[in-house]
Amino acid sequence: MLHTDMKTIVKYILLDLFKNKTILVYTFILAVLAVSVLSMSGNSSKGLLSLLNITLLFVPIISILFATIYFFNSMEFIELLLAQSVRRKTMILAEYCGVASALSIAYLLGVGLPSVLLNYSPASITLIFSGIFLTLIFTAIALLIFVVFKDKTKGIGAAIITALFFTLLFDGLLLSFIYSFSEYPIDKPLLGLISFNPVDLGRILVLLQLDVAVMMGYSGALFKEFMGSVIGSVYTLGCMSLWVLIPLAASVRKFKRKDL
C-alpha cells in the first residue's frame, strides 16, 4: 500500500516537474555550460575542473532553493493527498523522491551526458557521482527546512543561508581553523572536519581523481591515501549517504507530528 501510493505520487510529481520551467532552464544552462567548457578547454582535466566549479556553485544552491519553494507550494496538495488516507511518511518521502529525481535527472542530462560523451574518464564519473549526491543531500535539507518552518518566506531564507553556509561560510571557518592551528599537525583533524561539509567532500573526491591532486601537498596525499583505500571509500560513501539519510529521517519524524 505504502509502496504503490508512493509510486503513484512520485509519478505525478515527475509529470509535473518535467514541464516545470525552472527545471528545464536549469538543465539547459547546465548543458550549455558543460558543453562549452568541455569543448573549449583543450585539456580534459581543465574542462573537468571548470565543470567541478560549476557543479559546486550551482547544484547546492539551485537544489535547495528550488526544492524548498516547491515543497512549500505543494502544501495544499499535500494536505489534499493526506485527506485521501495517504500516510504521512509515504507522502513526505514521495515528495522528496519526486523532486530529488527530477533534479538528479536534470543534472544527469545537463552535466552527466556531455561529460560522458565528450570526456569519459574515472574523474568524470566521480564528478557525476558527487553532483548527484549533492543534489540528493541539498534536496533532503530542503525537505527538513520545509518541515521545520511554517512560513515559506522564512523557509526560503533558511535555504539561502544553508546553501551559503556550506558553499562559502564553512570553508571560511575551516580556513581560520587552519590558520589558528597551523603550528600543529592538523591534517588528520582536517579529514574529519571535511566530512561535515558535503560540498567539500564532493570537491575533494573529484580533485583526487585529477592530477591537480598533487598540488594539495601533504594533506592531499593523506586524503588520497585515505579515500583511495577501501575503508576510506566506504567512509566517504557513508558520509555522503548520512548527509542524505539524516535530514530525511529527521524530516519524516518531524512531519509525522506536524500540524498542517
Binding site: N53, D171, G172, I186, M216, G220
Partner: peptide, 20 residues
C-alpha cells in the same frame, strides 16, 4: 600567499571561497 604560509590550506583548492 595563504598557501605558501600554510600549505594545509591547499585543501580548499578550487572552492568558492578561494575564488572569491
Amino acid at each position: 600567499v595563504v598557501t605558501e604560509k600554510i600549505p594545509s590550506a591547499m585543501i580548499l583548492y578550487h572552492s568558492l571561497l578561494t575564488d572569491i
